[in-house]
Amino acid sequence: MKRYLIYVLLMFCCFSVYGQLAEEQRKRWTFAFYGDDSSENFQWSIAGNSNGQNPNVLSEVIWTKLKGAGMGLDVDLNIWSHIFFKGSYHKAFIRNGTATDHDYAADDRTQPTYSAFLKSNEGHTSRYSIALAYEIKFHELLAIMPYAGYAKNRQSFSLKNLEEKGDTKLNSRYQTNWSGTVVGLDLEVARLQRINLNAGLSYQQLHYTGLADWNLIDAFKHPLSFKHTAKGFESQVLLRLNFKINSMCAAYLRGEYRYAETGKGIDRLFLADGQERESRFNGAVRKVKGIGAGIIFSIR
């Protein structure tokens, strides 16, 4: 039985390779430019000490509905046979959003000692990725492209009072860096002669760093008040509907959803007198959704 399975597998591989070699081998480069609107939620918290106690949530900051317009570029370069280089870049500018900052004296977010309701209407997010992919065509209506590479995401958020009073203004900043290896799968389905659907799934193992400047706390060092480090992951779902204009150009609609979170890590506090303190970083969670439209140019 095992011998027959081996024969079948070898025959399948031979037919697959033969079919791919029989295709017209022409280089194919595609460039996709797009604009989009996105909405993002992000939060993190720390504990009172390195053991996650005293209390288990000492401070928590939550950003909600950070909205703004962005633009991006995706490229697929056929470098040899069925091997592709994939690259992408995206940047969005935050123009609207809110945030809350809470401190607690007891476990499980009880006995609040500080509460602030803030605005976050400045900042930006960016991401880029590079990868190598291999295209497999099962049929003229279906193709898949598994890939692996490296990706980096960055965020820059602000914290400001809803209404500024006095000469001293709250203008705290929190910046993040999520980076690591990424694996994914692109799927292309041609439904009609001039319409096709692309779907993408990706997963990223990452290292997380968060840098903060809490500008109104004199006891903290500036411009680096504290630093968060942890390990985590990100997953993404992307859908793209293409409308062919001619052999070299197509318009498309796109929608995506991203979810990222970290595990527990380290919160390192830098004081103005030069001392440093450590506590447990409970983790960060990020959720992003966006819709957009763009145009694709294909060169053969």
Rank of each mutant, 00 (worst) to 15 (best):
Phe117Thr: 03
Arg109Glu: 02
Thr176His: 05
Ser38Pro: 00
Ala251Met: 10
Ala143Cys: 07
Cys14Leu: 12
Val61Asp: 04
Gln43Arg: 07
Ala250Glu: 09
Gln175Ala: 11
Leu77Ala: 05
Arg240Ser: 01
Leu271Gln: 05
Leu10Gln: 08
Asn246Trp: 13
Glu261Cys: 04
Arg109Ile: 02
Tyr150Ile: 00
Val17Trp: 08
Glu256Tyr: 15
Val57Ser: 08
Pro146Arg: 00
Arg258His: 12
Glu164Thr: 06
Phe226Pro: 00
Ser39Tyr: 05
Asn198Glu: 13
Asp167Val: 02
Phe85Ser: 02
Ala284Asn: 14
Thr181Leu: 11
Asn54Pro: 00
Phe31Arg: 01
Glu261Gln: 15
Ala69Ser: 14
Ser16Lys: 06
Val17Thr: 10
Lys67Asn: 15
Phe31His: 00
Asn51Val: 06
Trp178Pro: 02
Glu23Val: 02
Val17Tyr: 09
Lys231Phe: 12
Leu162Phe: 07
Ala219Leu: 14
Leu118Cys: 08
Leu216Arg: 14
Pro112Trp: 07
Thr176Met: 11
Thr98Phe: 07
Ile6Pro: 06
Arg268Ser: 12
Ser235Arg: 13
Leu58Gln: 03
Ala92Leu: 10
Gly97Cys: 05
Ile245Arg: 11
Thr181Asp: 09
Leu142Thr: 00
Asn177Tyr: 07
Leu269Gly: 01
Arg254Ile: 13
Val285Ala: 09
Cys14Asn: 08
Ser88Asn: 14
Ala272Val: 13
Leu132Cys: 02
Ala32Gln: 11
Cys249Glu: 10
Glu23Lys: 14
Val57His: 09
Phe243Cys: 00
Thr30Glu: 14
Met145Val: 03
Glu278Met: 07
Lys227Tyr: 13
Ala131Asp: 01
Phe226Ala: 02
Leu5Ile: 08
Gly255Phe: 00
Glu234Ser: 14
Ser156Met: 06
Val288Gln: 13
Thr113Cys: 05
Gly292Thr: 00
Ala92Gln: 11
Ser59Ala: 12
Lys86Tyr: 04
Asp37Ser: 11
Asn242Tyr: 15
Met248Gly: 05
Ile94Thr: 05
Tyr150Thr: 06
Arg268Asn: 14
Arg173Phe: 07
Ile130Leu: 15
Tyr134Met: 08
Ser235Met: 12
Lys86Asp: 05
Val61Cys: 03
Leu66Ser: 07
Tyr7Leu: 13
Met248Trp: 12
Leu271Trp: 09
Phe93Thr: 04
